[in-house]
Every structure is written in C-alpha cells, then in structure tokens.
C-alpha cells in the first residue's frame, strides 16, 4: 500500500492557445505526505492544481485521484471522490450569500445523512479547531477580516474530514504572524488526522514549516522533485535564486545546516 499514489499525474500536457504551460509532466502524491508545488509566476502551479481538482482539462495526459479518473462519467463515483477532498482557495471563496455557520454546514447538509443537531455540533467543533469564536458564527463573509476568511475557508475545507487537502497559497495575504499561526494550525491538523496535502505556495517559511517534498515547476516541466534539502541543493537558475537567494537563505538557514 505504501507505493500507491493518492494523486497520479501521467504525461500531462497543457496548452492555452499556442502557449504551452506543461510539457509531459508526471507526478505521484504519496499518502500522508505534504507536497509543495513551487515555481515562478506563470509556471503553471495553479493550473496544475486546478487540473487535479477537475476544474480544468489538460490537453493530453491523465490525472487520477484516489485511483479514479476525474473525467469519468459516473456521477456517484465523482461525488464520493469529491467528498474525500477539501480545497482551500487563495481568497477563501466563501459563499457571500451564506453566514459563516451556513458556509461550513453546506458540505455536511449536502451529504443528506447528517441530522441538523449533529451538523450544529460538527460546525462548532470545526470553528473551535480554526480558533473562531461562536459569536462570529452568524456573521456574513463581508463582515470578516482577511485572516478570518482564510481560517473559516479552512474549516469549510475540513468540514467532511477529508483525506486529501488542497491549499492554494495558504498564507498569501496574511500578515507574518497570522501566517505563522495558520501554518501551526495546519500542522496540528496533520498530527491529529491522517491527511495528504498538496499546496501551491510562494512563501518560503510556509514551505520550510510544512512540506515533506517539493516539486519545482519551471520550463514547462518539473525540474526537481524531492525533499527540501535535496531540491535546494540542485543546480538550476530558478532554484538558485529562489532557495539560495537572500530570502531563501534566511528561511532555510536552520534546515540546511
């Protein structure tokens, strides 16, 4: 079982018009690991993540999540697959028409197997998990600060206790302190639950704190894949500037020495 992949990407090509984004990418996300996708802007890490979520279709190649193709036609199978993952979008993507409580309750209600009383207990538990007080439950997303939106969006992503979590720039737009708290939160969740995490990030501190393996996207392919130490030592212009630049050295200082 240790060799199976939660997400299996094979021979993936992506094109927008004549612009090639990915050329023959293959990747395996192992159970229980945190895989970080890293790359400069325009390198296609967000596109790759969106393809893993089935939001975009690659020009060629296949992606299988939990061994299931995302472009199959079995509605039931796709739905049960989607109940097993949670997604944290960069800007939270909370439903602005629903209160905080209803945002988190929505995925649970959609299951149609939970009683309203149980949903209430579960929502309060998730709110507690992301450190949001009960007094905020009735608020609308428009009344919340950026940091709160992120945390509530994480609570919604975790609503169904998923086995797989996607994080798109989890700490972007948060101040450093909040970002650190957010990383700690995700860390704590990992130790309590068996979670596989795929995240796209620019932030070196987040990368150092969370990732088990790093995949570096550049020149339309994955130029490096391995643990942070392995990847940071490789010879490539992007890696050199990203990991061994001034900021990179500061963040990696403790890990590498």
């Amino acid at each position: 079982m240790g060799k199976t992949c939660i997400i299996e990407v094979e021979g993936l090509h992506t094109r927008f018009g004549s612009h090639v984004v990915h050329r023959d990418i293959s990747l395996c996300v192992r159970p229980g690991e945190v895989l970080a996708l890293v790359g400069g802007s325009g390198s296609g890490k967000t596109v790759l993540m969106r393809q893993m979520l089935g939001l975009e279709t690659p020009a060629a190649g296949s992606i299988r999540v939990f061994g299931e193709s995302l472009h199959g036609h079995d509605r039931e199978a796709l739905q049960s697959l989607r109940n097993r993952w949670g997604v944290l979008f960069q800007k939270g993507a909370l439903f602005s028409a629903l209160s905080v409580y209803d945002n988190i309750a929505l995925p649970m209600r959609e299951l149609r197997t939970l009683s309203e009383g149980m949903i209430r207990d579960l929502v309060m538990l998730k709110l507690k998990m992301v450190d949001i007080g009960a007094e905020h439950a009735a608020k609308m997303p428009a009344e919340l600060s950026g940091g709160m939106i992120k945390r509530i969006a994480l609570a919604r992503a975790m609503a169904l206790d998923p086995e797989l979590l996607f994080l798109d720039e989890p700490t972007a737009g948060l101040d450093p302190q909040l970002g650190e708290a957010f990383v700690k939160l995700i860390h704590a969740m990992r130790t309590e639950l068996t979670l596989t995490i795929v995240m796209a990030t620019h932030d070196l501190d987040t990368l150092v704190a969370l990732s088990d393996r790093v995949a570096v996207l550049a020149e339309q392919r994955i130029v490096a894949l391995g643990s942070l130490q392995e990847v940071a030592g490789m010879e490539h212009p992007f890696i050199a500037s990203f990991f061994r630049g001034e900021r990179g050295q500061k963040a990696l200082g403790n890990t590498l020495s």
Partner: peptide, 17 residues
C-alpha cells in the same frame, strides 16, 4: 490516547449561539 484528544476537544467546543 488519540481518542482521548478527540473527546477533550469535544468538551472544549463552544456552545452554539
């Protein structure tokens, strides 16, 4: 022990408004 953690979280959960 790990179940113990789950239930102690449950005791700490705030009551819904």
């Amino acid at each position: 022990p790990e179940q113990e953690r789950l239930f102690s979280r449950m005791e700490a959960a705030p009551a819904p408004p």
